[in-house]
Design a protein around this nucleic acid. Structure first.
Lengths: 241, 241
DNA sequence: CATTTATTGTCTCAATATGTTACAATAATA
DNA sequence: TATTATTGTAACATATTGAGACAATAAATG
C-alpha cells in the first residue's frame, strides 16, 4: 500500500522554503541537516507553503516540528529563484525511496523558488526530529558539512553571511545561548559566527558598554581560578528585529 | 473585442515581484510609481515570473521595459508572503478598467507572494514607460507618495531601510549619479538616503580615504566661488555585490 | 581691476573609540 | 600558604571621527 503525497490542493506550487538552523555547542557553530531515507541525499530542513498560510508561519510550523521549540529567532535572508532549482530525478528517487505513489508527473518534481530563513536556537534545549522523508536530522559543523542537494550549500553560505552582517546590528548572538551565560561564552559565540578571534578585554568593554547585559551571581565551575559572573540580556524574550 | 489576459500556462501562479526604483533628482530621493487606468490605484512596478525564467531575469526584463536602461543596479531585499496579500476586488476592477476579459475566477486575482527588489538608476537618463495596465508612471518623493495598493507602502519602507544598511557596505550611492559628479552631489545622495545631514569635511575625508574615487577636471558651474573637482568611481561599471 | 562673495580642499586640534598591555582579585589545588 | 589559571578593570597608546579654521579660488560687483 503506497502512501499519498501531499496534494497540490493544499499547497502553492513552485513555492518552498528552506531553513538554516544554527546552534552553538560551546565550540563550533553547527546547523541541522536532514538525510533522506535510503538515498544518501542530504538537505536543509524545508517545506511547502499552504494556500491559506503566511510564509513566515509555514516556516515557524516546520521549525516547531523539527525542534520542539516554540519561540525561535527567525530571519528571512534571501529568496532563491533560478530555474536551475529543480532536480526531478533526485526528487523522484527520494519520493520512491519513501514509498510514495508517484504519477507520471507530480508538482513536487517541478521547479521551486525557495524563500530562505535562518534560525538561531539553543543547541542544548533541542532534540531534533526528522521529517517524513528523512532518516535522521543531525548537527553538522559548518566546515564538516556533507554534500548537500541542489544549491543548499550556497544557501548555507549566504545564511552565514547574513548572520555575520546582522551580528552587530541586532543582538543576535543571544539566541544561541542559554538565558544565563558567561562573558567568555558570549565571546565564543561571536568568534564562531565571525570566524575570527576577538580580543578579550575589548570585547568585554564593548559588551558592557552597550548596556544590554544584566550581571548575576558568579558561576563556580570548579576551576582553579577566579569565577566569572553570569549575565543575561536586559530586555525580555526574543530579540526579534 | 476584449483583450486576453496573460495565460497561467506561461507564468507561475501565486508568484510576483515588485521593484522599488530609486532615483535622485539633485535634491530628493524619488521612486517610480504606476497609476492604473481609470481606477485611481497606485502601485509599484511589478510583474510575474515565467515558468522558464530566473526570478532575477524577470525583474531585469521589467526594469528594461519601464526604464529603457540595460545594466541596472539591482538588489533583492525581502519576500513578502502574507496571505493578506490579495485584493481580488481591486484587481478585478483594474483588469476590467483595462478592458480585459475575466472569467469567474482568474489566477491574477489570487494570493501572491512577492519577491521585492530595489533598483538604483540615474534619474536624468530615464524616460519611464508605463506598463499595459497603467496610464502613467511617475517619480514621487518618498514623503509625497500617493496612497499605494496593498502593502506597497511597507515594501517601500523596507526597501529604503535596506538601502540605508547597504550604503556603507557597498558603494551603492554611485548608481544614482552620472558617471562624473562633484563631492557635493555625492554627499547630497548620501544625505537623501540616510535622511540626515552629514559633515562636509568628514564626508570628504572619508570618501577620499576609501581610495575609490578618481579625480578629474574641475567643473565650472558659473558660480561665484571656487570650482569643485569632478570625480568618478575607480572600478568600471556597475558595482553589483 | 581690486573687492566681495560663496564654496571648496585641506589642515589642525579635540573628542571618541579601539587596540594593547598590565595587574590585582579571586577559586580551586598542591 | 603558595601556585595556577582565569577574570574584571584600569591605564596607556593608537586610530578614527567630530568640529573649526583657513587659504584658494571662480565669478559677480562696482
Amino acid at each position: 500500500m503506497k502512501r499519498q503525497l501531499p496534494s497540490i490542493e493544499e499547497f502553492m506550487p513552485h513555492m518552498a522554503y528552506d531553513s538554516v538552523i544554527f546552534g552553538f555547542n560551546g565550540k563550533q557553530l553547527k546547523i541541522l541537516v536532514l538525510e533522506y531515507h535510503n538515498t544518501g541525499y542530504f538537505a536543509l530542513p524545508g517545506g511547502f507553503v499552504r494556500r491559506d498560510e503566511n510564509v513566515d508561519d509555514a516556516v515557524k510550523r516546520s521549525l516547531r516540528e523539527r525542534t520542539g521549540l516554540e519561540d525561535i529567532y527567525l530571519e528571512q535572508f534571501h529568496t532563491f529563484g533560478n530555474t536551475s532549482r529543480a532536480e526531478p530525478d533526485v526528487m523522484r528517487q527520494i519520493l520512491e525511496a519513501n514509498d510514495y505513489e508517484i504519477e507520471e508527473w507530480h508538482w513536487m518534481l517541478d521547479r521551486f523558488v525557495s524563500i530562505a530563513y535562518y534560525a538561531l536556537i539553543n543547541y542544548n534545549e533541542v532534540e531534533p526530529q526528522p521529517d517524513e522523508l528523512s532518516d535522521s536530522i543531525n548537527w553538522y559543523a559548518l566546515d564538516e558539512l556533507p554534500l548537500l542537494m541542489m544549491d543548499h550549500r550556497q544557501i548555507v553560505e549566504r545564511a552565514l553571511q547574513s548572520l555575520q552582517e546582522n551580528l552587530e546590528k541586532k543582538l543576535v548572538g543571544i539566541n544561541l545561548l542559554p538565558s544565563k551565560f558567561t562573558m567568555k561564552e558570549l565571546q565564543e559565540v561571536y568568534e564562531a559566527i565571525l570566524g575570527e578571534d576577538l580580543r578579550r578585554t575589548t570585547f568585554q568593554r564593548k559588551m558592557l558598554g552597550m548596556d544590554i547585559l544584566v550581571r548575576h551571581e558568579k558561576l563556580f565551575t570548579g576551576g582553579a581560578h577566579k569565577a566569572p559572573y553570569l549575565y543575561s540580556f536586559k530586555h525580555n524574550g526574543i530579540s526579534k528585529a
